[in-house]
Amino acid sequence: MRKLLLYFTLAVIGIIMLYPLLWLFGASFKSNDEIFTTIWFMPKSIDTDVYKNAWETVTPYTMGHYFINTFMIIIPKTVFAVLSSVLVAYGFARFDFPLKKFFFALLMCGMLMPSIVTVMPMYRMWSSLGLLDTYIPLTLPSLFACEGMFVFILIQFLKKVPREFDEAARIDGCGTLKTLFLVLMPCIRPAVISIAVFTFLWTMNDFLSPLIMIQSVEKYPLSLALRLSVDSTGQGYEQRKIIAMAVIGLIPSVAVFALAQKKFISGITAGGLSG
């Protein structure tokens, strides 16, 4: 009986959590009239042409173009973030060096610092370097382990790997970096995957930085292209086209999450903030 009640409660919460997304998908096939009069997500008829239209967008470029732009930001950013965070976490977790406590405190401060404070001076800096409207302001900072949380997660994971592993590697003739990449990296794989997935998702979701740094439509990532489409269509416009664009825009995030889901959640729960 208690079990049944629990399942029921969980199912109700599950519906609240997922129905809006299901509704969005259904609404991409509905006429304006149907969107605003029916609660049930299933459309009366399914016509896949709307997705063909949505792919063309209301801007001069196709969704494909914006996808490529987005990935031109995401791929370097993810590689940079993983590499730099792993190096820095390794330094903190395994070595002693001067001013270690100070730098660790700085890392923590960076985590608590509101991004809104740094965004304005960053804009100024990139603009004086003449790098606005390029992807450098969006990708380059990741090369410097700027996301304190990532370093923190990795440190937690590295601490759980026995130090004997390092010693054994050293005896076998591995240098500092070789030990990290050949011996330790495989042990902390869930954490590395979490970081890569987080970088992917956060970049997909990021809106403020591209809004500030990128001006030409040609270089827009997906988020700005979606906003442009919303802004340039009125109330009477065929809503399903916008909705279909939104659905297409959600696919990468949902797909990446679905693929990495198991490792990703274990990465945040095991390392993250617990303990």
């Binding site: 190096l87 820095v88 903190f92 395994r94 002693d96 700085l106 890392l107 610092m113 900072p141 410097f144």
Partner: peptide, 16 residues
């Protein structure tokens, strides 16, 4: 260790 966290030191100066 200092060398390993060098990216963060540069990053902290530039971005924090």
């Amino acid at each position: 260790g200092l060398l390993l966290i060098l990216p963060f030191i540069i990053g902290a100066i530039l971005f924090i």
